[in-house]
Design a protein around this nucleic acid. Sequence first.
DNA 1: AAGTAGTCCTGAGTGC
DNA 2: TGCACTCAGGACTACT
Length: 289
Amino acid sequence: MPELPEVETVRRGLQPVMEGRRFTSVQTRRGDLRVPFPNDFAARLTGRRVVKLRRRAKYILGDLDSGETLVIHLGMSGRMLVHTESTRKKLGNYGRHNGAIMSDADKHDHVVMETDAPARIVFNDQRRFGLMLLVETAELDEHKLFKGLGIEPLGDAFHAAFLTKALKGKKTPIKSALLDQRVIAGLGNIYVCEALFRARVSPKRQAIKVRPDQIALLAPAIKSILREALKAGGSSLRDHKRTDGEIGMFQHRFKVYDREGEPCPACKTKIKRLVQAGRSSFYCPNCQK
DNA sequence: AAGTAGTCCTGAGTGC
DNA sequence: TGCACTCAGGACTACT
């Protein structure tokens, strides 16, 4: 999916057309996402103002003036595209502002929202692994999607000492431990691979056996990878797009991800791929121990 | 309790 | 040009 840098890039793109703005109309065009929309989804959203647009893990959260929070998850292939006068040309003419004509509507456009920015915001998701929900803001932390979520890797509370504690007793490979959203919330397959390479830690090493000197490299490596990716607007392989339709650029800076058979940028050894818990891991068998 | 397959869905890419 | 097959940035459920 979009991982943390991609989700944050999307949040930043949505902020000017959502935060402080009101939804003037909401249309759900296809309801059978991974988690189906409640029947009254559009009614509960229409007329509401977004007080704050924030992010938790890979979720975008829009706190509404009604006391509910709009929860958005992009799944593997979700996009939020913003159509304004200035982006209309690039994204295509998506029908008249308040009219029913949607000539360029894609069959995977599942939700169309208008705000008084004015802007039209479209949630598009080919694979329908994403979701949009409305949850009472006061109950958000206790909601099953958020209750068990781990720490934010870009926050001050995430550092080597935290990681040491978090990995303690875990026999699972470090790769799987870092992907576990209950430990660190927001990391996905790409950035875990890249962070492990940067810290020279093998994805196969058991979490419990990652040495202190390796953890001292790993925690800052996670932070720096995420920060650099964020600065580049995220990574676009197939699906991720910014709200203006542009792609992210960080994929050009991958050292190991999706580079099986290519020479390691550090030592020229061929990069290997292996499957762990059903996900591909890419690593340099010489550099990463 | 912890770890790992199977599952949801569509589309792109590959090899015959 | 077509068909069969594999794979994909996530994460939940159900097993061992």
